[in-house]
Amino acid sequence: MLIRVEIPVDAAGINKLLRKAFSSDAEAELVNHLREDGLITLGIVATDDYGGVIGYAAFSPVMVNGEDRQWVGLAPLAVAEKYRGKGLGKALVYEGLDALNEFGYAAVAVLGDPAYYGALGFKTSAEYGLHCKWPDTASAFQIYPLAEESLQGISGLVEYSAPFDRF
């Protein structure tokens, strides 16, 4: 298995993985729209010994109170069924966090299972005075600061890019 930054040839495998990993095609369509709009800041793939995509994590820009603060959102995260429960999702997230930190990004937002992402170091956004526009998501909306000062003096609305509004 290899974990690396996605390259153009991975697009078909990512699309296939996302369509199988989720109950609808929404995540696959989201990634297609993000890619078409040039909004994938970072894509991390895991491939099997034959080069097939077995895991994927996408990171795209988010705004804080309408300002670009060098934050990104993590969505989607997918692992092929055969490889679930073996730490691959965690490895994809950590690889992404390390790369984003090296590139100078400040924080990562995610809307997902608090127990899963909490174990990876994400904190409930409300702890920082942050929220997203989707109702009833307070416990699932979480933040991972990549730099100590990235959350100082910041509170308010974290907004995902336009393709997220389509789904």
Rank of each mutant, 00 (worst) to 15 (best):
D48I: 06
G118C: 07
E149G: 09
D48V: 08
V93M: 04
L88G: 12
G87Q: 07
V93E: 11
T47K: 13
K133F: 14
D10Y: 01
I143A: 06
K133H: 06
G156F: 03
G96N: 07
G51A: 12
E36P: 06
T124A: 14
Y144M: 02
D68S: 10
S150P: 12
L18W: 04
P76W: 00
Y50Q: 14
T41P: 01
Y94R: 14
N65Y: 06
D25R: 04
G51T: 11
Y144V: 02
D48K: 11
P8N: 11
V72Q: 07
L157N: 15
G96K: 08
Y116I: 12
R166M: 09
G87P: 02
E102N: 05
K20A: 14
E95M: 14
G112I: 04
A107R: 13
T47P: 03
P8G: 10
A91W: 02
A28W: 00
V53K: 04
E159A: 14
M1E: 14
E102A: 12
A99C: 14
N32A: 15
D48H: 13
V62D: 03
F167A: 02
L157A: 14
F103P: 00
G52Y: 11
L74G: 02
E81W: 11
E27K: 03
D10W: 00
L92H: 06
L34Q: 08
W134M: 09
P135F: 12
S161L: 03
Y94A: 00
L130P: 09
P163S: 04
L74E: 01
I44L: 07
G13D: 06
G112K: 01
T124F: 02
T124D: 09
E27C: 10
R19F: 00
G112Y: 01
S24Y: 04
A78G: 08
W71R: 11
S139M: 05
A140D: 13
P8H: 03
A26H: 10
P61Q: 05
M63I: 01
W134A: 12
Q70D: 08
A126L: 13
T124K: 15
V45F: 04
D136P: 01
A28I: 01
G51C: 10
Q152Y: 07
R4C: 08
Y50H: 12
P114M: 10
F59Y: 15
Y117I: 03
G87D: 06
E36A: 15
I7L: 15
R4L: 01
Y94V: 00
A80Y: 00
P135L: 05
A12P: 02
V45T: 12
V108Q: 08
T41D: 04
D49G: 11
A107F: 04
L157Y: 12
E29Y: 09
G118H: 08
Y105S: 03
A21V: 03
P76F: 00
L34I: 11
T47M: 09
G43I: 02
L120M: 13
V110P: 10
K16S: 13
F141T: 05
A107C: 09
A126G: 15
S60V: 11
G87Y: 07
L120R: 07
S60H: 05
F22T: 01
Y128Q: 10
E29I: 13
V108L: 03
R69S: 10
Q152T: 15
